[in-house]
Every structure is written in C-alpha cells, then in structure tokens.
C-alpha cells in the first residue's frame, strides 16, 4: 500500500460525455463555496432578497469589518494554527519513535502491545471524552494550550501508518550501520527517518487536517474567547446571533475559517491529493 510517491495515473480515455459530467460534478461541489463567497462580500440588503441575485451589484467588506469587531476571528485563526502545528509535530515525532520500536526492535510483548494500540483505533472518541476531560480539569489545564494539545499527542493511527512504512524499508542498510557500531538512535535518525520522507509528510498532513477540523475537544476544554479555535469561535458566533442571524457576517466568518486551509491546500495541492489517496489504510 505504500504508493505515496507514485503518481496517480491517468488511464481511461475520456469521452466528451464523461468530461462534461466531470465538470458538471466539479461545479456542483464548488457551488456552496462560491455561494459563500458571493454572500460574504454582499451588502445585507442584497443578501436578503428573493429571487437571489447571482452576482453582487456592489462588493463590500462590511460583513468582515462588522464580524471582526464582534469576534476576535484573527485570534481564533492564530490559536488554531498554533494548536494544529504543535499537535502535528508532536504526533509525528512521538509516533515515529514508537513505530520504530514496533517495526525494528525485539522486546517481550511487542506484538501484544501493538495489537492493543490497534484495538484502541476502533474505540469512538466519545468513549474517552469524559475521562480525558476530567483528567485535564484535575490537572488545572482547562482553557489553556496544554488542554488543547497534550491529550492529542499520541496517535495509534499514525503509529500504525509509520510502522507499516518502516517495515517496508530493507534491513540491509541498518545491518551495515550496526556493524559500523551505530546505536539504535543513530540508525533511526540517520537511516530510517531520511528514507521515510513521504510517509512522514503524509502523517503530518493527516494530523494537521484532523486537528484543524476538530471541534468537540476544543469546545469542551475552552472557556474564554481568547482560547477558542476557529470552529469553536465560529459556532459560538452563531449562537450569539441566535434569532437574528446575519447571514452576511456568518458567511464572512466561514470564509475566514476556510481561508487558511484553502491556501495550504492550494500550495500543496499535488502532494495532498497523492497523500490522501494512499491514506486509505485507516481503520
């Protein structure tokens, strides 16, 4: 399953019918985003109109300025980026270390322990949610970066993913290094890690997306505005408007929430498409 570095091949010759259908489907999937953009830049008096106007008669930043005076959205984005980055780095580093032990070292109970890791992957997050919350509040971490990051640092899934990749690396290279007297840490850092670039990058990507989109955990462990991540901030903004929802501002909020991921995705497009295609060994 390690096709991370193979291109997605394009094989089937496409008829004009298939091409038409392809672009029609792409238009359907893009439509909600376009509608969001259109509404975010439209003055309120034009948004609340039926039949809807397809093109804004005038473009305005009012929705954004109003939103930003009511909610510290840029702060939410900084929080989300910080938390997702910390968790991503932590998960990849910690999982890589564990994965190396599982893939390459012999120790009593190895396979049983690995099976235990795998078994926890089928446990829904709801099961561990309450004890995690209680633990974090006992530690006095509620409403802090520690609460948002530390409990997320271990990932059985990434450990599994990286172990599978490490197993596919031929052992001869390590044998040679061992004969030269290299220790395990040195072998791990100078041989295994450099050969695992694509797998590490895929892991980082999955960790980042997973954390960026995480809502339930940050919802539970944050109290103040200052600690909110983007999804929590956006949802609480909607709650505050309850009853008299301003859809222009709401769409402006959605635009701001989606923007960082959109930029990241645009920059790393080819890599992301390739990584996600091979992430299918999850579960």
């Amino acid at each position: 399953m390690h096709q991370t570095d193979t291109e997605i091949r394009q094989r089937a010759p496409s008829s004009w019918g298939a091409t038409l259908l392809l672009w029609l489907s792409a238009a359907v999937v893009a439509f909600p985003f376009l509608w969001m953009l259109r509404s975010a830049f439209m003055p309120t008096k034009f948004i609340m109109r039926f039949p809807p106007l397809w093109i804004p008669p005038e473009v305005t930043f009012d929705n954004f300025t109003k939103l930003l005076t009511r909610q510290p959205f840029l702060h939410y984005i900084t929080n989300s980026l910080t938390v997702a980055t910390i968790v991503t780095v932590g998960q990849v580093v910690i999982s890589a270390f564990s994965a190396y032990a599982f893939a390459r070292l012999r120790f009593p109970g190895r396979d049983k322990l690995f099976l235990l890791y795998l078994a926890t992957m089928v446990i829904p997050v709801q099961v561990t949610l309450i004890p995690q919350y209680v633990l974090v509040s006992q530690l006095g971490w509620i409403d802090s970066y520690a609460a948002l990051t530390v409990p997320m640092l271990s990932s059985a899934f990434l450990t599994f993913l990286l172990r599978q990749y490490f197993l596919s690396i031929p052992g001869e290279l390590e044998d040679a290094a061992r004969i030269d007297g290299a220790g395990y840490l040195r072998i791990f850092v100078t041989i295994i890690l450099p050969l695992s670039g694509p797998a590490l990058a895929t892991s980082a990507l999955l960790a980042f997306i997973g954390n960026w989109t995480n809502y339930l955990w940050p919802l539970i462990v944050t109290r103040s505005r200052e600690m909110r991540t983007v999804p929590v901030g956006l949802a609480s903004f909607q709650d505050e408007m309850a009853g008299r929802t301003d859809y222009g501002q709401m769409m402006a909020g959605a635009v701001l929430s989606i923007l960082p991921m959109f930029i990241l995705f645009l920059l790393l497009q080819r890599f992301i498409v390739r990584s996600l295609a091979t992430s299918g060994l999850k579960g």
Binding site: A26, Y215, V230, P231, M250, A254, F262, I272, V273, L276
Partner: peptide, 18 residues
C-alpha cells in the same frame, strides 16, 4: 480533484454554516 477534496479539508462547522 482539488475541488472535490476541498470540502474534506474544511471544518464541519464552516461547512454547516454555509
């Protein structure tokens, strides 16, 4: 492919608002 993947990398809250 990029367009089809876009909903997946956006968070569910924004998507739900839209």
């Amino acid at each position: 492919r990029f367009l089809w993947l876009l909903p997946f990398v956006t968070d569910m809250i924004s998507v739900s608002m839209v």
